[in-house]
Design a protein around this nucleic acid. Structure first.
Length: 578
DNA sequence: GCCGTTTTCGGCCCGACTGTTTTCAGTCG
């Protein structure tokens, strides 16, 4: 059973308990368990049956959670979850997704008016039946109707590159039009999370009302959700929500830390502060005994006064970073400047838009020492994929360009299709001519989990395969990953000295952070590639590198940080994580 | 339900905004 499915059950228990007005601490405990399971770097279900101590060691997961997991593994569900669903209609969980509607109101509507679905809610609000309830009035009804309609069109997360583009443009606008001192984008986009739900912008200044006013009058603002003295929330043209916080410059560091999150990271930090006799809020670290602010102007101070080494935003997910930092350690994360080349790209030989030479020159411009040209193979006819003959011809072309541009090494490669049965799309005698073989799935996405896992593992066992391209096939906000036992895939890759790709395209980011964390712990090597189809796509590299950083990868985990000689040894399978 | 450098019982993170209230609960991040 996947961590996601397990986490979902605990989340539902928490939500149902909340609707029933259960013990808030017990509820938080279930929420925390769900989050910890979802973020775990190993398969929790499997670990519970094989090595339960490993699961018990996770702070926040105790005996109660473990025995529920065991129940779920036995019978697909646990007693508490089942009993709750007998008391509360499951459709109420759907209502929780309506913005500004929480468990208390949902419980109230259900008990007083029998509302169990979004449609019920909409009818009741239209008919003016909600306003009779405590603390409900006309305005609340209107707000709910608006939220329901808004939810239908915008209930989604956005790609990280979209989020970062919008926040860059908003910041540029504010810098130009408002009296800002310091400005930064916080939130999940600063942590480089794969998708963003909204934009968080932080401004320090001396005249908050001016900045807030400027913000809500941005030409792309279509709706103002909230507007106060220190913050405002707006909806932008594409449906994306943006929040602005305005504060004095002395508080900027504290606010940056606070609004960068993650929420889970901050909760642990605040608990720690409390144990040490401090309080943390968005204005600073305050010593409880005399109410004195001891940090807040700079973000780093916030960590230092708590006895922690400051850490990069990407790892602030409560996945052990605070414990490490407490010991004076911060992982030595891979950086964009460590990357010496790219091992997956296309040219006009298949579906790319630029020539071998154009790609090589663009790479050289970027400071790369080597690249691999990896066009598609023949199974992808629509992309002009190469057959054996064409590949050999293509190799001769690559060699010519390689000789003409001595400053960079161009490796001969292919992105060969993994066919439905796990065989490769090209004969071995052709593949043997190459320096790099990337193998990828591009068809038959809906095989069963077992079949897909077997298919990919068979390809990984092929002695000529070097890299598994975009291992789960997902397209963010568009297409789910195919069904796959990712641990089995990683294990097979390690056994066969195959590297796993982090495809840096912002629509893919595949492997994703959590799987990449798993891969690292299981001893896999990673290749961060842009899968460029033209020279401009090299710009996506940071999305891949920051995904790697979210998984705590160092440059030693990433083969395209290696000097060419060492890279060649990995490609020849003479070296793998020595 | 979880946890222990006060604790195996009794705690458990913090503040802004809104809409409805005459002092606050609900929701969000």
């Amino acid at each position: 059973m996947e961590n996601r499915d397990l986490a979902q059950i605990f989340k539902e228990i928490a939500d149902l308990l909340e609707i029933l007005d259960g013990n808030p601490f017990r509820i938080r405990s279930f929420q925390r368990a769900a989050q910890l399971i979802d973020n775990a770097s190993f398969n929790i279900a499997q670990a519970v049956s094989e090595d339960v101590q490993k699961v018990k060691a996770i702070q926040g997961i105790g005996g109660g959670t473990i025995s529920k997991i065991e129940e779920i593994l036995q019978g697909g569900d646990c007693d508490e979850h089942r009993k709750l669903l007998e008391k509360v209609p499951g459709s109420l969980l759907e209502l929780l997704r309506v913005p500004n509607l929480g468990p208390k109101k949902i419980g109230l509507f259900w008990k007083e008016l029998g509302i169990t679905t979004v449609e019920d809610l909409e009818r009741a609000a239209r008919a003016g039946r909600l306003r009779g309830l405590p603390k409900m009035g006309e305005k609340s009804e209107a707000k709910i109707l608006k939220a329901v309609q808004g939810m239908r069109s915008t209930e989604k997360r956005y790609r990280l590159d979209d989020g970062r583009e919008v926040s860059q443009s908003l910041m540029g606008y504010l810098k130009e039009n408002a009296p800002v001192l310091r400005i930064a984008a916080a939130g999940s986009s600063r942590r480089w999370k794969e998708t963003v739900g909204d934009i968080d912008i932080l401004v320090s200044c001396r005249q908050p009302p001016e900045v807030i006013d400027c913000f809500v009058h941005h030409p792309d603002v279509v709706d103002v959700l909230a507007q106060g003295d220190t913050k405002a929330s707006v909806v932008l043209r594409r449906g994306l929500q943006a929040d602005l916080r305005v504060l004095e410059d002395d508080y900027f560091g504290a606010a940056l830390q606070y609004f960068t999150g993650s929420k889970e990271h901050n909760v642990v930090l605040r608990e720690r502060a409390k144990r040490m006799g401090y309080k943390i809020n968005e204005y600073g670290v305050i010593r409880l005994e005399d109410g004195k602010k001891v940090a807040g102007k700079e973000e780093d101070e916030m960590y230092r006064v708590l006895g922690l080494v400051p850490m990069p935003p990407e790892i602030r997910e409560n996945r052990g970073e605070i414990e490490e930092s407490e010991q004076g350690r911060v992982p030595d994360l891979v950086e964009v400047s460590d990357i010496r080349g790219d091992l997956h790209m296309h040219t006009t030989a298949s579906d790319g838009r630029d020539s071998i030479e154009a790609m090589a020159r663009a790479a050289l411009e970027k400071g790369y020492r080597y690249i691999a040209i990896t066009d598609h193979s023949k199974a992808l006819a629509m992309t002009g994929g190469l057959d054996e003959e064409q590949l050999l011809e293509h190799c001769r072309n690559i060699e010519q360009v390689n000789a003409a541009i001595p400053e960079i090494t161009i490796l001969k490669g292919i992105e060969v299709d993994i066919l439905a049965d796990g065989q490769l799309d090209l004969r071995d005698d052709a593949l043997e001519q190459l320096d790099v073989v990337v193998a990828s799935v591009h068809s038959r996405f809906n095989l069963s989990r077992d079949k897909m896992t077997g298919r990919i593992c068979r390809a990984l066992e092929h002695p000529l395969v070097n890299i598994l391209g975009h291992p789960t096939g997902r397209l963010l906000t568009q297409r789910d990953p195919y069904q796959l036992d990712i641990e089995e895939v990683i294990r097979t890759a390690v056994e066969n000295r195959v590297c796993l790709e982090i495809n840096a395209h912002p629509a893919r980011l595949d492997l994703k952070d959590v799987h990449c964390l798993m891969a690292r712990e299981m001893g896999a090597l990673i290749s961060i590639n842009c899968d460029s189809h033209d020279t401009r796509m090299f710009r996506y590299l940071p999305y891949g590198v920051h995904t790697a950083r979210r998984a705590w990868l160092s440059s030693d985990d990433v083969i395209n940080t290696y000097p060419l000689e060492r890279l060649r040894k990995v490609l020849a399978k003479q070296e793998y994580r020595n």
